[in-house]
Nucleic acid binder design. Structure first.
Lengths: 134, 134
DNA sequence: AGTACAATGATACAATTATACAATGAGACA
DNA sequence: TGTCTCATTGTATAATTGTATCATTGTACT
């Protein structure tokens, strides 16, 4: 598993791990039944302590997103209810958006500039959809 | 770490600590990646309060010279603060935007949904600017 | 004196790490 | 089959590290 952390962001590492995994589940990179890396394996890959990973896993477990079992490992929960996966998607979208806006705001963009940038790039990446938004 | 302070100079201690550390980085006694003493260890060595060291570290952190991480320690930054110029800023914003859009596309959002989400969050984060965009 | 402000200190807190522990499963072997 | 051993897995708790907040001290200015 390859997920990026920002040690300078001020956002606790365990929360960053929680968010990255939620994203991977929401967009399908991780599927129900998949086994997550062991707390030690992921910690080694990220160069952090395995208790920090364990803390992230515990939060995801308490949210019913994954299932951690002592001695066995950690797995993405099977059969997520549709409303759960929809809620997760919304949550991930909002978290991504919040982070993005905070980043560009820190670089000094004002709201209008942000909206204009987004609009340009959306048009560039989806030229066919352009007529749909008058 | 051995750095001298002058308690009678009238120059605040925390600023003296900032300057001594800057010097040690400039002349190579401290190298990128090196861990600095903990705030408590350095404070003990200098016989000052650890909050004073923490204040110095915070200033160096905000300058991008060091990276302080709660629970982990304090480290000399690899790349001494590439001050983002106006020209570069544009590039960074576009890269961030591209990435953000790729992320939300992968989650299945269509362009209109994206613009709507952004708009909502901008309003939430910048309520005061709202009347300005009619 | 009295006020204002900056520097420093004291205390409580949150994030991360270190260490020891308990549950599980795979293989050896009687 | 049973159970022993041991590596692997997650768990619990305390120690370490930086952070936040307020109190104290000292100095300059009225």
């Amino acid at each position: 598993m390859n997920l990026e952390l920002d040690f300078r962001s001020g956002i606790p590492i365990y929360l960053q791990v929680v968010d990255r995994i939620k994203e991977m589940i929401a967009d399908g990179r991780l599927e129900p039944g998949n086994q997550l890396p062991t707390v030690r394996a992921l910690a080694f890959a990220l160069r952090i302590n395995f208790n920090t990973v364990a803390r992230a896993y515990r939060i995801l477990d308490e949210s019913g997103i994954i299932s951690t079992q002592q001695g066995r490992g950690t797995y993405i929960m099977e059969t997520p209810q549709p409303e759960v996966s929809m809620a997760l998607r919304r949550e991930v979208v909002e978290a991504l958006t919040e982070r993005y806006l905070a980043d560009v705001f820190r670089l000094g963009l004002d709201p209008e500039e942000i909206l204009r940038t987004i609009d340009q790039q959306v048009k560039k990446q989806f030229p066919e959809k352009e007529e749909g938004k008058q």
